[in-house]
Design a protein around this nucleic acid. Structure first.
Lengths: 338, 338
DNA sequence: TTGAAAGCGCTAACAC
DNA sequence: GTGTTAGCGCTTTCAA
């Protein structure tokens, strides 16, 4: 194994000089720097991570706590994770992967054994049991999600409330007078993840502002539930003209059910989806949609964490503005046409 | 920060005794051991990971190289990852997450800076560019997947060839005389991941043994491609009675296409899927299926890696036997009924 | 602009 | 069965 003393000898300098060339914490003459860098390359030197961590009290590793088992939303979780890893690498940090299931024990472990410099915690619930611990751990942390009381924490998430409102605004501007929201499974609302409720709240508020008829319908993650829900809605309100779908896994069945009952999109019914862009694009009729910007959420989380590690102050809550992409599933409602 | 000397003083022993209580590498009297353990608990002591790594040359961390961006198969990737993390924790190890994209540079980095004790590399291709590096790295590694030449490596995977054969055996035993395989997208065969080709090979061999008519049809990951493929097959062979589907993302469309053309499953057409069990169970007709045992593959990978870290010899290739679960999508073919 | 040297907290060889 | 102590490889004062 090549060590710093080997490099120092090879370059004819002291170990500390090699260290400073690497860290840039001291000005080094051009000449010395080039010589040291050449030696590093020649010998193939890499600092020993453990030794570095011991001496500098920095590991260059961040923990990512992810819900690896939650059947739902797996693709989105992966997008977060990919974005977190990539962004962290851009800051010369690595990612240690912890599962949600390890719970508070895992947080204690990695923080207290100085395995990591900071934590990114995904899937934070409204009243998450880990919040007090995260406050007291003495390790900088960033949460993905928005707890009921974010005081003293750093949180990043999509502004789901604004997303709900955005869907309504778009449909209202097209002249629709009534909108039904097909939402997440009932458990998701109960689990108090917050995002489903926040979207529903933004949806309802915006509908109120526009004076629209609007209802929220939780829906199980299976095609059959979606189809029967759509049929029921069409029976109750044969003139139904606008649907917002906030449950990726039932998108296709919802569209099939509309087709089966003789409704065409967007001529008879306009549909807005909250889902990843690729799903919206691949639907039979490309869907007007609001996407969960997983890549951006992951990136911001790491950037905020790096800022905290640098001792910078950061805002407590970062809500990313939703963007609605108009595709071919929404069109003018009856009143506008009339 | 509580350190080992604090614990030693508190328990009235030397630091090395505390270390040996923790590692179990030396016999300690019952009395001393209990006293030290009590002090550890009282003071809330955790060994400093960096110091430990420096002194012992072991980090208790394994690297997991995962294809975080590959749109396809995301749920299976997550199952692997979850299983790897959980199993590793059972051996008191953590997981450092690397992306496929970092490529060989990432492997160099974590191995040479002594960040990890070993590597689990997912999604290994037939002629993977990383293989020579993995051989020369001097770090134990286990691959998930099966390269063309596994000599000197340690590999774990589902026995896809046996899986293909198993599907054929099952359908043949039901009296079917012709079987069509709806496979992965053409890119997957070209990318030489191996598994798609191995399944097709097992499928063809078994069909040959049984003297069956059998063909393999690559299929794009979109519903439209699946539907048109099914329609074409039914046109070419109106008597088609058995289908094997090795492409999770088109399962539903395939079933819809059968329904649309008036075929019922399993009365007219038997269907075997290679897919996760939950998907097979949730289909309109619960599907007879062969599952990718992601949990078991991940577990075995870590167990093999731990064995190598202990200096034990392990076999080069571990192919997990497929298991076929009979559900309601397969039934006797024409000849048997006649 | 650079060097010397004192740790960082732990493990394991050596001594008893 | 237990203690003493010399490192592990690096960073960072302190000194020049």
């Amino acid at each position: 194994m090549v060590k710093i003393t080997d490099v120092a000898r090879h370059a004819g300098v002291s170990p500390s000089t090699v260290s400073y060339v690497l860290s840039g914490k001291r000005t080094i003459s051009q000449d010395t720097r080039l010589r040291v860098q050449a030696s590093i390359r020649t010998l193939g030197y890499r600092p020993h991570a453990g030794a570095r961590a011991l001496a500098s009290r920095r590991t260059q590793v961040l923990a990512l706590v992810a819900p690896l088992r939650s059947g739902v939303n797996v693709p989105v979780i992966m997008q977060f994770a990919a974005s977190v890893v990539t962004t962290a690498r851009g800051f010369d940090h690595d990612i240690l992967l912890l599962t949600q299931e390890e719970g508070e024990a895992g947080l204690h472990r990695v923080a207290e054994s100085a395995l990591v410099d900071g934590l990114v915690v995904m899937d934070v619930q409204l009243h998450d049991a880990r919040l007090p611990l995260l406050q007291s751990l003495g390790q900088p942390a960033v949460l993905i999600g928005l707890p009921a009381d974010p005081t003293g924490l750093t949180c990043v998430d999509l502004d789901f409330s604004a997303a709900g409102a955005l869907c309504v605004d778009h449909l209202a501007s097209l002249g629709h007078r009534g909108i039904e929201l097909i939402g997440s499974p009932p458990q998701v609302y109960q689990r108090q993840s917050g995002y489903a409720a926040r979207l529903a709240e933004g949806f309802r508020c915006a509908a109120g502002r526009h004076g629209l008829h609007a209802r929220v319908h939780p829906c199980q993650d299976c095609p059959e539930a979606a189809q029967s829900l759509v049929r029921r809605l069409l029976t109750e309100r044969p003139g139904l003209s606008a649907l917002v779908v906030h449950n990726e896994s039932v998108l296709r069945p919802v569209l099939s059910a509309l087709a089966d009952t003789g409704r065409s999109v967007p001529q008879d019914v306009s549909v807005v989806a909250i889902c990843p862009d690729d799903q919206a694009e691949q639907a039979p009729v490309p869907l007007t949609s609001v996407t969960v910007p997983a890549e951006e959420v992951g990136r911001q989380a790491v950037e905020l964490l790096m800022a905290k590690l640098d001792g910078r102050q950061v805002r407590s809550t970062t809500l990313l503005a939703p963007r609605l992409t108009v595709r071919r599933s929404t069109a003018a409602g009856a009143r506008v046409l009339a």
